[in-house]
Design a protein around this nucleic acid. Sequence first.
DNA 1: TTCGTTCACATACCGATGGTAGGTGAGAGA
DNA 2: TCTCTCACCTACCATCGGTATGTGAACGAA
Lengths: 195, 195
Amino acid sequence: MGQTARERQRERTRRRLLDVSRELFATEGYGAVGLAEIVAAAEVTKGALYHHFSGKADLFRAVLREVQEDVGRRVAGAADAREDPWERLTAGCQEFLTAATGPGIQRIMLVDGPAVLGWNEWRGMDEESSARHLGEALAELMEHGVVARQPVAPLAHLLSGAMNEAALWLATSAQPQDMADTRAALARLLEALRA
Amino acid sequence: MGQTARERQRERTRRRLLDVSRELFATEGYGAVGLAEIVAAAEVTKGALYHHFSGKADLFRAVLREVQEDVGRRVAGAADAREDPWERLTAGCQEFLTAATGPGIQRIMLVDGPAVLGWNEWRGMDEESSARHLGEALAELMEHGVVARQPVAPLAHLLSGAMNEAALWLATSAQPQDMADTRAALARLLEALRA
DNA sequence: TTCGTTCACATACCGATGGTAGGTGAGAGA
DNA sequence: TCTCTCACCTACCATCGGTATGTGAACGAA
């Protein structure tokens, strides 16, 4: 760890800003939290914030990236634990439902993300983190003849949107039965893809 | 038509504000358009705006309501043109894809809506306008034994989210083939629901 | 027709917020 | 030790959403 004191301090400040922002953005929403609130909670000044990020939206972008990477890791982890391609798909989808339903994820990743950065950029980031896995899994299954050959992109978007909305709904619905029902309904939809 | 001059003027101002806002919100996005821009385009003052709406978010809410009603009308119209319950569902879903893909709809209804008003309120409004039709159609199909009996809400959310995301994607993708492919993929997913 | 009231706005103003410019002191390299 | 860089701070600005107060035309009652 030959990092200098400067580098350590720099990383520390950046981390505090990211952690604090993630917490605030998740609970209050992007629009409702001000930079003053962020820098106060992080115990730095606005100057430090603007030294690390080009603005409020850029800070949000960095936070969103970390959130998406967290979710993407969980999805990939669940998928990689299986050998059978079909199980990789279903396990990944179910894991996504669980991960995206957790607190501190939704508001940033599914609600404010598209609005703050624009749908196009959000889509690109989502693609890199988790949606890519979905497309690859579908393509592989078509390769193996498990799923009927068809354009991958439309199907991937349909499924991705279905899971996003379901996660948002599940987070507000307090009834545990809803999660089980949604899992079952999703499994049924996926099952329908098998040739 | 016994409306007084005052009522006519009032309605006229309100309409201009709604029309101008809808156009601006759709093209620039909620965050990027200021009240000054709106009132200038509508040729009124901020006083008039605040006389009709309680604030920027409230104005947006009114615009969103009109957008959703437009889409809801189209969906209901397509569904009501059919007799067979199954066809009512599929026709409604396909019409939604077309309507939501059109310009001036997406940004307001699918991107900024949840972020500005919060997902919960957005969900409620969406429910009233178009999602309700989906749930009712599904319930009716289960009643008739066309679709396997199961909890309606999870399935409705999955399908609703799938169509929303697909519409967003289709609007950016310039290739006409994508629309056809998406319609086909959606039809296949729906077909899987038949018992 | 008169006259007081209401209503649909207009004007002037305020606080807060995102963003910027210039400065400062500690740490790194020579 | 000297100099330069860099991480960060302070003071300030422009803009934006929101509000308090004013005003003239339209309406209803007499």
